[in-house]
Amino acid sequence: MTVVKEHTPPLTGSPRPRGAARLGDLPFGAIASAALLAVVVVAAVAPGLLTRADPLAADPLRALAPPGGAHWFGTDHLGRDVLARVVHGAGHSLSIGAGAVLVAVGVGLLLGVLAGLAPRLLDEALSRAFDTLATFPDVMLALLVIAILGPGTGNVILAIGLAQIPNYARVIRAQTFVVRRSGYVEQAVTFGLAWPRLVLRHVLPNALGPLPVLATIGLGQAVIAASGLSFLGMGPQPPSPEWGTMLAEARNYLRVAWWQAFFPGVAVTLTVICLTATGRRLQRRFEGRRS
């Protein structure tokens, strides 16, 4: 498709070149979070690069060994290598988070654009539906979904995704609303452009603006929610090395083995901090560009 070509409307194009600023201009925090996120992504995609150990290989004779030579992060109550489990856990935790964001963005985009373009009555109905969905605390909604579907990775993705739909749908609706009433869309209408083409080429690309920011912050929130549900035993089942699941197991050994909880805890926290910080940086840039 030739959507990309139309992305920047000619009249409002900023003189500042698009794309990343020079590396030297970026503050330390931005570089650090990008580097950490890169490590997490490598761990998720190719865990073998970071650790040789098998995350599932139990060795009861070496259970609860403190961090040291053979096991940098120590071993857990079954003698599994905590480092290997943390590294392999990245894939589980991130894919649940990313899956949930995809579900939420996909459905939110569809419903948001629909509400933004629809006649008033349908718009009103959809908006009320978003409001109602947003009424429930995310965790409660997720519990309801899991009560229906049962625990498991896919169901947690659906549960968290469903709870996040209103976040995206509302923003996309508002954006669509604005874009639809803007001058260039009205002009396109006077030129007699067909609706599907109008929506796909002019409304949609320009309504998408805030999505990357929202999705980055949303991914952080989804990772938190996923680890919470896994902690409650509703996500990936043991022995899967998911961060929340690992923390649930570690909860019982806090007194004797702090490292079993410490390292997955640090992993999930750092990941979310980097995602949130990156999202906010994007947000500031985005808002700066707008005003």
Partner: peptide, 18 residues
């Protein structure tokens, strides 16, 4: 504040507990 919003509540609980 950034840390506070980025740590899952159950993890804060675990840290305080230990």
């Amino acid at each position: 504040e950034l840390v506070a919003v980025s740590v899952p509540p159950f993890l804060i609980g675990i840290v305080l507990l230990s």
